[in-house]
Amino acid sequence: MSARTGQEQGFTLVEALVALLVLSIGLLGVAAMQLKSLQGAHAAYQRSIASLAAQDAQERLWAEMAAHWAAHKELKCPGPGSVNGEGAAWDDQWSSLLPGLNHVPVSLEDTCEYDITVSWDEGRFSGEGAPEFTYAVMLPGDTGEE
């Protein structure tokens, strides 16, 4: 074996610091990706809640129509305000799960065609605006307006 000179033994302090800097930058990138994935998971959770809220509004419209059928034996389209009718109001039920939830999300477009718009305020994602979902629902029946 040949003897090594003093310049070839191990790493220098500068090389170790450069390696530590490269490793630190990589770890910062991993932390940023983790943050983005958590934000995406939270946004997906809120979209799921918005979808459930819209389905609940649709079912409240169906329930109002069924109640009118039971009482009068005619299919009549309920008014948009029937979503916040008797019992627990729609917005009271869902506003605890979606911050800044819009109130009375249902609008009657045409003969028994409704647009259910669910929007809420999301402060975590700056610059994206308020998320909004619109669902179109068509029920059988007549508006009763002639």
Rank of each mutant, 00 (worst) to 15 (best):
S51W: 14
G144S: 00
V83P: 03
E15Q: 06
L108R: 09
P105G: 03
L61H: 04
T12L: 05
N102T: 07
A53Q: 02
A50M: 13
P140G: 00
S126W: 04
H42Y: 06
T143M: 14
P140H: 06
V106G: 07
L97Q: 07
P105F: 00
A32S: 11
H42F: 10
A41P: 06
R60A: 02
D142L: 14
G79Q: 05
H103Q: 15
L23I: 14
D121T: 15
M138H: 11
D121R: 11
G144C: 00
G29T: 01
L98F: 10
G100Y: 01
E64V: 02
Y114V: 14
L21I: 11
V14S: 12
T111S: 08
T111Y: 01
Q9K: 15
E146A: 12
Q58R: 08
Q34V: 14
W120Y: 09
V83S: 04
V14Q: 11
A31G: 15
A130F: 04
Q34K: 09
A32C: 06
V22L: 13
G40M: 15
Q39D: 12
G123I: 04
G81K: 13
Y45G: 15
D110F: 08
G141F: 07
N84R: 05
Q55H: 09
G141Q: 13
S107Y: 09
G144L: 00
A67T: 15
R47A: 11
M1I: 11
S37D: 13
M65N: 06
K36F: 15
S48F: 06
I116P: 06
W120A: 00
L21H: 14
S24W: 11
A32T: 14
T5K: 15
G40Y: 07
A136S: 08
G129H: 05
G127E: 12
Q93I: 14
N102Q: 05
